[in-house]
Write a protein that binds this DNA or RNA. Structure first.
Length: 284
DNA sequence: CTCCAGGTGCCGA
DNA sequence: TCGGCACATGGA
């Protein structure tokens, strides 16, 4: 199978993007003698991605369309970054990883992994995600190595809460199982919610997410940002809250802090948030 | 051992 | 509406 090369056009960093706490499945993988990363995306793949130089992303020809969407290679980064505030910390965060992109992940995979993320470190979210894939996902071999799709709602619903608990999920097992059941019985209409046509879709998806047990403001916002592509959405986790308190001197809480952040960081506040989060986590 | 991690639901004031 | 607390698990 032939390889394709994509020129990202704007500044793009594959490794930073795949390991910035948005997606949790990417593993180092050498393909045809080239070091890169491989994983399944939702029910697709595995796909392999490499970036031997700044203006060159390598992948298999058949994966090109999927990769462009997933990696956000069509994002107009200069235009997006011009909407960020120009304060010192924001500037430092941009300088630290100028090639960071917001991914566009499948809804179920993104929702399910973030349900398992509450009060967990990124490394452990990855471990949990991998275990769920290995136990309940579909095996797909690539270069003689096994990869696994993210388990479908049906697979997790059938597995049962106790089996999920065995994957070190703790109290999150109930939330994940109930979400899987909701997706299967249509209470949470995955396919409808994943299509994005009108302006109302944002609020529709947000409301549906918040009705799920175990999904609050933070997780709903992560899904809106990392799957829905709603870049104005600004998730506030412990890292971001710490930054807003210590760097930006904000003593506000909850909805008031959220309101301030959305106002201050602008129309692409969520995109800005990812630079802040990554910078803080890697340097503080 | 203690503290913390990309939080949420529920309780009482 | 708002603060306090329980909830599982593993790494630092």
């Amino acid at each position: 199978m032939g390889l394709s090369s994509i020129d990202p056009e704007h500044c793009f960093d594959l490794a930073e993007t795949l390991h910035s706490g948005q997606a949790f499945q990417w593993l180092p993988h050498r393909h045809e003698g080239i070091d890169g990363f491989a994983a399944c995306i939702g029910e697709l793949g595995p796909i392999w991605l490499a970036q031997p130089s700044a203006r060159q992303v390598l992948l298999r020809e058949t994966d090109e369309a999927l990769a462009r969407t997933y990696l956000g290679l069509d994002h107009d980064m200069p235009a997006i970054q011009r909407t960020f505030p120009a304060d010192d910390f924001m500037t430092s965060a941009l300088d630290f990883s100028p090639g960071l992109r917001i991914l566009r992940q499948p809804l179920w995979e993104c929702l399910a992994t973030f349900i398992t993320s509450s009060l967990k470190q990124v490394a452990h979210i990855s471990a949990i995600s991998l275990e769920l894939r290995r136990r309940f996902g579909e095996r797909r071999d690539f270069d003689g190595q096994p990869f696994f799709t993210y388990p479908s709602p049906a697979a997790l619903a059938d597995a049962g809460e106790e089996a999920l608990r065995d994957c070190a999920l703790g109290y999150r097992a109930k939330s994940l199982h109930r979400a899987a059941v909701a997706a299967v019985d249509g209470t949470f209409p995955l396919v409808d919610l994943e299509t994005r046509q009108s302006r109302e879709d944002h609020e529709r998806l947000r409301q549906a997410l918040l009705e799920l047990h175990g999904v609050g403001e933070k997780i709903a916002n992560c899904v809106l940002l990392f799957s829905g592509g709603y870049w104005e959405t600004f998730p506030i986790d412990v890292w971001i809250e710490r930054i807003l308190r210590t760097v930006y001197r904000k003593r506000l809480k909850g909805a008031r802090l959220q309101e301030w952040a959305n106002q201050y960081f602008g129309v692409n506040a969520g995109y800005a948030q990812q630079y802040l989060f990554h910078f803080a986590r890697k340097t503080l």
